[in-house]
């Protein structure tokens, strides 16, 4: 229960962090601006707002990992390097309290950032379009919160495993590269690399399902597919074109159901759950065994 002690100290400090307030304001402005310019497309106001939140989710897919990593990567490593952890652990707190407390406080901070963006986007959408498609808004909010949590989980775990700030920074950069950049940049993409390895080095026939399955391990793609779960069918994105037969109509339910189970939108829940839990288990295990000097 004394993780509350850790959270209390974290919050008191965070409240005064100018950097944190600045990022929250920037996020809010991005969302408000997006909502403001979204009116130009055709369709009903409800559809406009739905597509606004779809676009917001697309931006979040690359932006939120940065926010979550930056908010969390020093949570434990920073305390270790500066010696703040000596005070935390001189009080009746265990290492688990420190780990859980830091996780809870950073999850709250990131959730607050997402909430800030949503409040800004919803307010502008309401005033400009007068529509509130609750299912899409709350659905994307929930999925986005889970996506943010996976990166907090990754960052906290690396922070717990790192003995110094510099290693924690390297870890944060590295994970953004490996988990996001490698799926976004057109040239160096995971499926392209795997395909080359598979067909050239191993000399096998191309197998799109395999390449897609491998890139589906990233929380980035899992998030984009999880967003499909809460969007109306005609707004869903098709991500694994190469695994679909040619005659499938985009925007139809078949664009999802025709895929193998492990490539369907529903499977993203499993992937997000993996990224939420596994890093935490590893990070905690390493932190528990570490010598804190």
């Amino acid at each position: 229960m004394s993780s509350a002690s850790v959270v209390r100290k974290d919050f008191r400090g965070a409240r005064r962090s100018r950097m944190l307030w600045a990022s929250a304001i920037v996020l809010g402005l991005i969302a408000a601006l997006l909502a403001y310019v979204s009116g130009s497309s055709a369709g009903t106001s409800t559809e406009t707002v739905q597509s606004l939140f779809r676009t917001l989710a697309l931006i979040m897919s690359v932006l939120l990992p940065i926010v979550a990593l930056v908010a969390s990567y020093l949570a434990i490593a920073g305390e270790r390097e500066s010696g703040g952890i000596k005070f935390l652990l001189s009080l009746p707190n265990t290492r688990r309290d420190v780990f859980v407390g830091k996780l809870a406080s950073r999850l709250t901070i990131v959730a607050a950032g997402i909430g800030f963006m949503y409040i800004a986007a919803i307010s502008v959408a309401l005033t400009r379009h007068g529509a509130f498609p609750a299912a899409v808004i709350l659905g994307t909010l929930l999925v986005t919160a889970v996506y943010g949590a996976t990166f907090v989980s990754v960052a906290i775990s690396m922070s717990a495993a790192a003995a110094s700030k510099s290693r924690a920074i390297a870890g944060a950069f590295g994970s953004y590269f490996v988990l996001v950049i490698l799926y976004v940049f057109p040239v160096v993409q995971i499926p392209t690399m795997v395909r080359w390895l598979h067909t050239t080095i191993l000399g096998a026939d191309p197998n799109p399902d395999l390449y897609n399955a491998i890139q589906y391990t990233s929380p980035y793609l899992a998030y984009r597919k999880a967003i499909n779960l809460v969007l109306p069918a005609d707004q869903r994105q098709v991500i694994f074109y190469s695994s679909l037969p040619d005659d499938i109509e985009y925007g139809s339910a078949a664009a999802n159901t025709e895929l193998p189970v492990y490539l369907q939108d529903e499977f993203s829940v499993v992937i997000l759950a993996f990224w939420l839990v596994v890093p935490l288990v590893l990070g905690y295990w390493l932190f528990k065994r570490a010598d804190l000097e």
């Binding site: 008191r12 400090g13 001189s90």
Partner: peptide, 13 residues
Amino acid sequence: GVLPEGYGFDDYL
């Protein structure tokens, strides 16, 4: 009660 070695006051407190 502990006065540890290598502590740090790094929060905005």
